[in-house]
Simulated assay, not measured.
Amino acid sequence: MGPPEPEQRFEELYMAHYPAIATYVRRRAGSPDDIADVIAETFTTAWRRLNDVPEGDGARLWLYGVARRTLANHFRGEERRAALAVRLREEITTWADSVVGAESAYEAFKRLSDDDRELLALVAWEGLSGAEIAKVLGCSLGAARLRLHRARKRLSRELAHLDAGYPLHQQIAPAKGRS
């Protein structure tokens, strides 16, 4: 009689060693979900590497080794997820602290003309250079640079206006001789 079929061998392996592996994992993992995941991964590895699983009691020891490595991988993953959660909380806190400034900047941006907003967006959001902006606008490089300079000055005035706490309907007159 030849060796058992792979399905039969795996079923025998599972039935013989599931209780020991489940107890091993239960003692080391925290939640029922973690326990179920580690046990499932351990026996999935056994199925994929069925030809590597030793016969007899060596199979149980081999499965303990797989379960041990699976637990270690699981705990490393948990540590990475916890560290990521901490970093995300810190970033959200930093972002929330800067929202007030961002709202002011957005308010100032919204108060600009459509042309000024488009110019500033081409630089900030699209990352275009002066020469590229000139092509988009269909004008000379000098004209594009001048328009961009003026749009930045108007944005700067709007930001200063909002930072000074003036009501939104008041306007600051440009300094004489400057635009």
Rank of each mutant, 00 (worst) to 15 (best):
V99E: 10
A83C: 04
A108N: 07
F109S: 00
K135E: 15
A108H: 00
L128N: 00
G142Y: 06
R154P: 02
D163N: 09
A131E: 15
E79R: 07
W125M: 08
H149A: 04
A108V: 01
V99Q: 13
L162S: 05
L137A: 08
A160R: 11
L141H: 07
G142A: 11
R150Q: 10
L119D: 00
R154T: 03
D163I: 09
R154C: 05
S129E: 05
V123I: 06
L155C: 05
D163F: 06
Y106K: 11
H169L: 05
L141I: 10
R117S: 06
K135R: 15
H149W: 12
Y106N: 07
K110F: 06
V136T: 09
E91Y: 07
G138W: 01
A83T: 10
K153N: 03
R76S: 14
H74S: 03
E126C: 01
R157F: 06
E103V: 15
R150F: 07
R76G: 14
I92F: 04
L168F: 03
E103D: 13
L119A: 04
A82W: 05
D116L: 03
S98A: 15
E90T: 10
A134L: 10
V99D: 02
A108D: 01
L168I: 05
S113V: 06
V100N: 08
L137E: 09
R147T: 05
S98T: 14
Y166I: 03
Y166M: 10
C139V: 15
F109T: 12
F109Q: 02
A102S: 12
A134T: 01
R87F: 09
L162D: 05
L120Q: 03
R154V: 01
A108W: 00
R157A: 12
G77L: 10
A85R: 14
G101F: 03
V100D: 08
